[in-house]
Computed example of a mutant assay.
Amino acid sequence: MGKRKSSQACLRGEWKEVSTRSVKLPEIDSESFSTYLQWLYTNEVVVSDEDITDEHIVKARYGERLPVFQRHFAAFFKLAILADKLGNARLANAVVDRIILVARVVRLGPSACNIATVYSQLPESSPVRSLVVAYYATEVKAEFMTKHKEQFPYQFIFDLMVHSKKREEEKTSNTPSYPGERCRYHQHNEKVPNV
């Protein structure tokens, strides 16, 4: 199992959590966990009372709406990190779907700061990492990336370059790769089949 204990494994075997019947997750903030619990009951990813897809928010001036959108993206990514730590593919997929919906409606994507969080806390194999790369490859102008080049993680820039090269080689420029088929960014296992 390596260095990380899964939450289910902690409640079996010889771990101390077996006797206390509790699993501590100090690296998970209470807001993300609260959102996770709400998702368990409602099957909806809601990170704030404010619906950022509301028309008046979408049409607000760029400077006013940008901080609101980036707070939402930050919350989505924290939830994706929680899903990864819990090994919950259904939650991870729900977060991906919400990110795609919001990015499509508000026509803005995650900031360089939010991408740095994704890259520092999610594994290389994470579909969320692939999603932000695909978004930037197709939706973000070079001018923006040049202006903020110091803020992007090196690995993100490398992944973006590889993604762009693969698109060129596969000659898929006619078909949008972002979001493309959303299942491309989902996780699948025996509990969450590819349907």
Rank of each mutant, 00 (worst) to 15 (best):
M1P: 12
S7V: 14
Q8L: 13
A9V: 09
C10T: 04
C10A: 15
G13Q: 03
E14F: 09
V18E: 04
V18N: 06
V18K: 12
S19I: 12
K24M: 03
K24T: 06
K24S: 10
L25H: 01
F33L: 10
Q38S: 13
L40Q: 14
Y41E: 11
T42H: 08
E44L: 14
V46G: 01
V46I: 15
S48C: 08
E50R: 13
T53S: 07
D54T: 09
K59Q: 13
A60F: 09
G63K: 14
R65A: 10
L66W: 10
L66Y: 12
F69C: 08
R71F: 04
F76N: 07
A83N: 03
K85R: 15
A89C: 10
A89S: 14
R90T: 10
V95F: 01
R98M: 02
I100H: 05
A103G: 15
V105M: 02
R107G: 01
L108G: 06
G109D: 04
P110I: 04
S111N: 03
N114S: 08
A116V: 10
Y119C: 04
Q121P: 00
P123V: 02
S125G: 13
S125K: 15
S126C: 11
R129V: 10
R129A: 11
V133T: 13
A134V: 04
A137H: 11
A137R: 09
A137T: 09
E143L: 07
K149C: 13
E150M: 12
P153C: 06
F156R: 07
D159G: 01
S164C: 13
E168N: 08
K171L: 04
T175F: 02
P176G: 09
S177F: 00
S177N: 05
P179V: 02
P179F: 05
G180E: 03
E181M: 07
C183M: 14
R184S: 05
E190H: 12
P193E: 03
V195Y: 06
